[in-house]
Nucleic acid binder design. Structure first.
Length: 266
DNA sequence: CGGAGCCCCTGTAAGC
DNA sequence: TGCTTACAGGGGCTCC
């Protein structure tokens, strides 16, 4: 499931091969990933040059001559350069020097056309860029559970289920702890561990749990360094207590019941 | 604001 | 072995 590090890895593998290239042709198969824009997309993309490839949270933005393409990988979306194998191609872009395929098994992703200057919905600050003090101050303003806040892209952009569980574990914060009840010291610790975690994951090429691969079809390596995600029942690497799993906003949530305590109410 | 619940979608794993 | 069912979850939506 692509989150910030996976999307960043994809963008890095795409950029050198896309910038400056002209889109010669595009073919699509009917899919909800186009949100009704399939006709417009096939009509508008050919002939335009790609000027920039950026990450905006978990979105990939391609800046063209007259438009911008916003790609979200959802759960199983991939951007692949031929000849990397593709099983569920939704869009195929013929470029001057490459063939790029947007593949998405479950179609939770999106491939949509935006006006040139737009980036889609306005999201919160990037998880890798937000300043520690700002992060702590924002948390203090909210009553919602910390896990929900970190997953909320309008609050903070880039974090997904896996890295949220890992970051909360590293900072020893219970996933259900309300934002304003996270002590400033722990909020700063969370900022530090989140940043380090994301950077290490990017350096490892992201986490490949099931489907994720970069644009060359390469899997990431960070899944081997997860401490709690997918580790229900395993001993906590720090204290040995059994890692627990619960559901928070419909997401499997993994944590150490001993290391990650709720603040005591008194 | 915030939480709960549902939906989309399909491959995989578990259960019978 | 083969069928059925549950589950995975990013994000968008409604409802209270």
């Amino acid at each position: 499931m692509p989150e910030l590090p996976e999307v960043e890895t994809v963008v890095r593998s795409l950029a050198p091969r896309l910038v400056g290239q002209r889109i010669l042709a595009i073919t699509t198969t009917p899919s909800r990933v186009f949100r009704g824009q399939q006709q417009v997309i096939t009509a508008c993309l050919p002939g335009q040059q790609i000027h920039q490839v950026q990450r905006y949270g978990k979105n990939i933005l391609l800046t063209l001559d007259r438009h911008r393409v916003r790609i979200h990988l959802g759960m199983t979306g991939k951007l692949l350069f031929a000849p990397a194998p593709s099983t569920h191609p939704r869009a195929m872009l013929a470029l001057e020097d490459a063939l790029l395929v947007f593949d998405d098994i479950r179609q939770f992703g999106r491939f949509e056309l935006l006006p040139a200057e737009e980036s889609g919905p306005v999201l919160g600050e990037d998880a890798l860029e937000i300043a520690p003090a700002t992060f702590a101050a924002r948390l203090r303003e909210r009553r919602g559970a910390i896990k929900n806040l970190l997953l909320n892209q309008v609050f903070l952009r880039g974090m997904g289920n896996i890295y949220t569980d890992e970051a909360l574990y590293l900072a020893r914060i219970h996933p259900l702890c309300p934002g304003f009840l996270v002590p400033r010291r722990k909020a700063l610790a969370l900022h530090t561990s989140m940043r380090a975690l994301l950077q290490e994951a990017i350096a490892a090429g992201g986490s490949s749990i099931s489907d994720y691969v970069d644009a060359s079809g390469q899997r990431g390596a960070f899944q081997d360094r997860h401490q709690v995600y997918g580790k229900e029942g395993d001993p906590c690497p720090r204290c040995g207590a059994a890692i627990r799993r619960m559901v928070v906003c419909q997401r499997g949530t993994h944590y150490c019941p001993r290391c990650q305590r709720m603040p005591s109410v008194r």
